[in-house]
Design a protein around this nucleic acid. Structure first.
Lengths: 224, 224
DNA sequence: ATAGCAAGTCGTACTAAGTACGAACGCTTA
DNA sequence: TAAGCGTTCGTACTTAGTACGACTTGCTAT
């Protein structure tokens, strides 16, 4: 690893610094603001220097995804499978929400990094230790992952929407709601979703428990 | 609507034709191949003519998302709520899988079209007719949507992966599996996922029923 | 039929962004 | 102190979105 150096005399660039800076930019200004030039500015160099630490923008994005997975909390192995999965899934959702660019990126990357692989390995191992037969493991795995990713995706959408200038959006909504189309959406919004104590995120725990309970039931029946 | 014309004398461009062509390109060559120039070629014009039918690429993408939603099957209202939702969710999954570019696009668009709004309206109405109180409606809605989107997203990923040239991927996998890290993933792949009768999609129906059953149970208890 | 006008088309050109190429720089080791 | 090599960076090419303004087309009213 000739790239890194121990003495902190002059903080030269390194793959880690580049990736961290990329995540910072994406967090702060959105993924579309992450250009090689902006990244170079942020770490105090010129564009072409970036390419000595990451092979290209694709690789950069792959690395960012792996950083996201590295931030997911890893529950201790002693935990009961449901608790372990709950910890992991909640943390995953929190991390994905914190890095709003991550979910759409997940979809487009096809080069899993070590942290991503380790995450999947851990989930599979947890399900296995719970005593599930492989077919049930497969279902549980697919279903939980889908729910977590899907939820995070919607949450990211909502966050952007509420943060956005309401100008266009309100206009669009108003235009759509003029003729009383979408009555149920209107009622839902008025009587529930716009209440101050409404929190979309609450549905995450609800859905997660729905799935875990269902899986536990299936495991009990399979086991019998 | 001066844009369209009834006599088919000379098929001039129209918003519909442009959008349909865009969907074709994205389906066939991937969303990254959808450039204004490629689109112009495909409909037999020059780039700038496109801009007379869609205001820009963003609007084009918004329109494509709405086309996707228009393709989701709309179950008859007489159906029992669980059957109705099953039809709709399965169809949604099928449509999203057919247009692999759609899921990542969903996330990034913030301008819902009429078809998307109508879809959401219909789902809400179905839940309402089932007799759910609004808080439960909210949970059901969020949870089902998350699952469908998330599952479609993973499916799209898998499809790309298996379609891709296995060269790099196999190498990467091999490299990662050398030291016997990821034992559970290995076992899972060998003993289950690589079997000829394994079908990732089967987990969709499994998860969907898990959720619908759980919601039905909640409804029963709430109602009591 | 035809003048006139609005809708549609297109050539040109500008800008942003990724990155290939090769020269210059500076740190390390002899 | 000089060779050697990893790093940095100036320049320039390429692809993509799209603004501008001129040209073309076909409908409408006479």
């Amino acid at each position: 690893m000739p790239t890194t150096r121990e003495d902190g005399r002059k903080p030269r660039l390194s793959r880690e610094r580049v990736l961290a800076a990329a995540v910072e930019i994406a967090d702060r200004d959105g993924i579309e603001a992450l250009t090689i030039r902006a990244l170079a500015d942020h770490v105090g160099t010129k564009p072409m220097s970036i390419y000595h630490h990451v092979a290209g923008k694709e690789v950069l994005l792959d690395g960012m995804v792996d950083i996201v997975f590295s931030e997911i909390e890893k529950p201790p192995v002693e935990l009961e499978w449901r608790d372990a999965l709950r910890v992991r899934c909640r943390s995953a959702r929190e991390v994905l929400a914190r890095h709003q660019w991550s979910v759409p990126l997940l979809e487009s990357r096809h080069h899993p990094g070590p942290e991503l692989l380790a995450h999947h390995e851990a989930v599979l191992a947890t399900l296995d230790r719970a005593g599930m037969p492989l077919p049930l493991v497969a279902h549980a795995y697919a279903v939980l992952d889908s729910f977590v990713y899907g939820f995070a995706m919607q949450e990211a959408n909502l966050a952007v929407q509420s943060g956005e200038a309401d100008a266009e959006l309100a206009e669009e909504i108003a235009a759509a709601f003029d003729p009383g189309a979408y009555p149920m959406m209107t009622r839902f919004a008025m009587e529930h979703a716009m209440r101050p104590d409404f929190n979309f995120g609450d549905s995450f725990d609800y859905g997660l428990d729905l799935l875990l309970d269902g899986l536990a039931r299936a495991l009990r029946e399979e086991g019998a």
